[in-house]
Protein backbone atom coordinates (compact mmCIF):
# COMPACT_ATOMS: atom_id res chain seq x y z
CA UNK A 1 0.00 0.00 0.00
CA UNK A 2 2.76 2.41 0.93
CA UNK A 3 4.48 2.07 -2.47
CA UNK A 4 2.69 4.32 -4.92
CA UNK A 5 2.10 1.78 -7.64
CA UNK A 6 -0.37 3.23 -10.11
CA UNK A 7 -1.82 -0.25 -10.64
CA UNK A 8 -2.70 -0.72 -6.98
CA UNK A 9 -4.05 2.62 -5.77
CA UNK A 10 -5.34 2.99 -2.24
CA UNK A 11 -8.93 3.42 -3.42
CA UNK A 12 -9.01 0.13 -5.37
CA UNK A 13 -10.60 -1.92 -2.54
CA UNK A 14 -13.48 0.55 -2.55
CA UNK A 15 -14.73 -0.96 -5.81
CA UNK A 16 -14.33 -4.51 -4.57
CA UNK A 17 -16.29 -3.76 -1.42
CA UNK A 18 -18.91 -1.99 -3.51
CA UNK A 19 -19.15 -5.20 -5.52
CA UNK A 20 -19.78 -7.21 -2.35
CA UNK A 21 -22.43 -4.75 -1.25
CA UNK A 22 -24.12 -4.65 -4.67
CA UNK A 23 -24.22 -8.44 -4.81
CA UNK A 24 -25.92 -8.76 -1.44
CA UNK A 25 -28.23 -5.75 -1.82
CA UNK A 26 -29.45 -6.61 -5.31
CA UNK A 27 -29.72 -10.33 -4.77
CA UNK A 28 -31.50 -10.07 -1.45
CA UNK A 29 -33.83 -7.33 -2.69
CA UNK A 30 -34.85 -9.62 -5.55
CA UNK A 31 -35.20 -12.60 -3.21
CA UNK A 32 -37.27 -10.54 -0.79
CA UNK A 33 -39.58 -9.32 -3.55
CA UNK A 34 -40.01 -12.83 -4.90
CA UNK A 35 -40.73 -14.26 -1.45
CA UNK A 36 -43.15 -11.50 -0.49
CA UNK A 37 -45.08 -11.37 -3.76
CA UNK A 38 -45.46 -15.13 -4.09
CA UNK A 39 -46.15 -15.39 -0.35
CA UNK A 40 -49.14 -13.09 -0.81
CA UNK A 41 -50.47 -15.41 -3.50
CA UNK A 42 -49.79 -18.53 -1.43
CA UNK A 43 -51.60 -17.21 1.61
CA UNK A 44 -54.42 -16.18 -0.72
CA UNK A 45 -54.94 -19.67 -2.09
CA UNK A 46 -54.15 -21.35 1.22
CA UNK A 47 -57.46 -20.09 2.55
CA UNK A 48 -59.36 -22.08 -0.05
CA UNK A 49 -57.21 -25.17 -0.57
CA UNK A 50 -54.61 -25.68 2.15
CA UNK A 51 -53.36 -28.89 0.56
CA UNK A 52 -51.86 -26.85 -2.29
CA UNK A 53 -49.57 -24.84 -0.03
CA UNK A 54 -46.68 -27.31 -0.12
CA UNK A 55 -46.62 -27.42 -3.90
CA UNK A 56 -47.05 -23.67 -4.14
CA UNK A 57 -44.00 -22.96 -2.01
CA UNK A 58 -41.67 -23.48 -4.98
CA UNK A 59 -41.32 -19.75 -5.84
CA UNK A 60 -40.31 -19.10 -2.23
CA UNK A 61 -37.59 -21.77 -2.41
CA UNK A 62 -36.39 -20.35 -5.73
CA UNK A 63 -36.19 -16.88 -4.22
CA UNK A 64 -34.13 -18.35 -1.43
CA UNK A 65 -31.74 -19.78 -3.98
CA UNK A 66 -31.26 -16.30 -5.44
CA UNK A 67 -30.17 -15.18 -2.00
CA UNK A 68 -27.72 -18.10 -1.87
CA UNK A 69 -26.21 -17.07 -5.21
CA UNK A 70 -25.47 -13.56 -4.04
CA UNK A 71 -24.19 -14.88 -0.73
CA UNK A 72 -21.77 -17.21 -2.50
CA UNK A 73 -20.44 -14.44 -4.73
CA UNK A 74 -20.08 -12.09 -1.77
CA UNK A 75 -18.12 -14.68 0.19
CA UNK A 76 -15.98 -15.36 -2.87
CA UNK A 77 -15.16 -11.69 -3.41
CA UNK A 78 -14.58 -11.02 0.26
CA UNK A 79 -12.17 -13.95 0.38
CA UNK A 80 -9.91 -12.25 -2.16
CA UNK A 81 -9.66 -9.07 -0.15
CA UNK A 82 -7.52 -8.34 2.84
CA UNK A 83 -5.85 -5.39 4.50
CA UNK A 84 -2.33 -6.71 3.86
CA UNK A 85 -2.87 -8.09 0.36
CA UNK A 86 -1.92 -6.12 -2.74
CA UNK A 87 -5.15 -5.26 -4.48
CA UNK A 88 -5.04 -3.88 -7.99
CA UNK A 89 -7.53 -1.52 -9.52
CA UNK A 90 -8.26 -4.22 -12.10
CA UNK A 91 -9.31 -6.59 -9.33
CA UNK A 92 -11.46 -3.86 -7.84
CA UNK A 93 -13.35 -3.30 -11.07
CA UNK A 94 -13.53 -7.04 -11.61
CA UNK A 95 -15.15 -7.56 -8.23
CA UNK A 96 -17.46 -4.63 -8.79
CA UNK A 97 -18.54 -6.13 -12.08
CA UNK A 98 -19.03 -9.58 -10.54
CA UNK A 99 -21.11 -8.15 -7.72
CA UNK A 100 -23.18 -6.00 -10.04
CA UNK A 101 -23.85 -8.86 -12.42
CA UNK A 102 -25.06 -11.25 -9.74
CA UNK A 103 -26.90 -8.51 -7.85
CA UNK A 104 -28.79 -7.03 -10.76
CA UNK A 105 -29.59 -10.38 -12.34
CA UNK A 106 -30.78 -11.58 -8.95
CA UNK A 107 -33.00 -8.52 -8.68
CA UNK A 108 -34.45 -9.19 -12.12
CA UNK A 109 -34.95 -12.90 -11.45
CA UNK A 110 -36.57 -12.18 -8.10
CA UNK A 111 -38.97 -9.72 -9.72
CA UNK A 112 -39.91 -12.31 -12.33
CA UNK A 113 -40.27 -15.08 -9.75
CA UNK A 114 -42.45 -12.89 -7.56
CA UNK A 115 -44.89 -11.93 -10.28
CA UNK A 116 -44.99 -15.37 -11.90
CA UNK A 117 -45.32 -17.06 -8.52
CA UNK A 118 -48.21 -14.86 -7.46
CA UNK A 119 -50.16 -15.19 -10.69
CA UNK A 120 -49.25 -18.84 -11.25
CA UNK A 121 -50.25 -19.94 -7.77
CA UNK A 122 -53.58 -18.15 -8.06
CA UNK A 123 -54.18 -19.80 -11.44
CA UNK A 124 -53.20 -23.17 -9.98
CA UNK A 125 -56.11 -22.83 -7.57
CA UNK A 126 -58.54 -23.21 -10.45
CA UNK A 127 -56.61 -25.17 -13.05
CA UNK A 128 -54.16 -27.83 -11.89
CA UNK A 129 -52.53 -28.14 -15.31
CA UNK A 130 -50.98 -24.72 -14.85
CA UNK A 131 -48.54 -26.24 -12.37
CA UNK A 132 -46.01 -27.70 -14.81
CA UNK A 133 -46.03 -24.52 -16.85
CA UNK A 134 -45.62 -22.43 -13.75
CA UNK A 135 -42.64 -24.49 -12.60
CA UNK A 136 -41.05 -24.19 -16.05
CA UNK A 137 -41.52 -20.43 -16.13
CA UNK A 138 -40.12 -20.18 -12.62
CA UNK A 139 -37.09 -22.25 -13.62
CA UNK A 140 -36.44 -20.01 -16.61
CA UNK A 141 -36.77 -16.96 -14.39
CA UNK A 142 -34.41 -18.44 -11.84
CA UNK A 143 -31.88 -19.37 -14.51
CA UNK A 144 -31.46 -15.64 -15.13
CA UNK A 145 -29.99 -15.38 -11.67
CA UNK A 146 -27.82 -18.41 -12.39
CA UNK A 147 -26.41 -16.65 -15.47
CA UNK A 148 -25.36 -13.76 -13.28
CA UNK A 149 -23.67 -16.20 -10.91
CA UNK A 150 -21.84 -17.94 -13.75
CA UNK A 151 -20.57 -14.63 -15.12
CA UNK A 152 -19.49 -13.58 -11.65
CA UNK A 153 -17.58 -16.85 -11.16
CA UNK A 154 -15.89 -16.52 -14.56
CA UNK A 155 -14.95 -12.93 -13.81
CA UNK A 156 -13.58 -13.98 -10.46
CA UNK A 157 -11.16 -16.43 -12.08
CA UNK A 158 -9.59 -13.53 -14.01
CA UNK A 159 -8.50 -11.86 -10.81
CA UNK A 160 -5.37 -13.96 -10.49
CA UNK A 161 -4.45 -12.78 -6.99
Amino acid sequence: MSDHNPLTPAFAPFFGMAGVAFAMIGGCAGAAFGTAKSGIGISGIGIFRPELIMKSLIPVVMSGILGVYSLVVSVLIAGDMGPDKSYSLFQGFLHLSAGLSVGCSGLAAGYAIGNVGDAGVRAYLEQSRVYVGMVLILIFAEVLGLYGLIVALILNTKGGS
Binding site: V68, V72, L76, G79, D80, L146, L149, L153, N156, T157
Partner: peptide, 9 residues
Protein backbone atom coordinates in the same frame (compact mmCIF):
# COMPACT_ATOMS: atom_id res chain seq x y z
CA UNK B 1 -12.57 -21.03 -4.41
CA UNK B 2 -14.43 -20.94 -7.74
CA UNK B 3 -14.97 -24.69 -7.69
CA UNK B 4 -16.36 -24.40 -4.18
CA UNK B 5 -18.73 -21.64 -5.32
CA UNK B 6 -19.91 -23.78 -8.23
CA UNK B 7 -20.49 -26.69 -5.86
CA UNK B 8 -22.48 -24.40 -3.57
CA UNK B 9 -24.69 -23.30 -6.48
Amino acid sequence: TVLGAAIAA
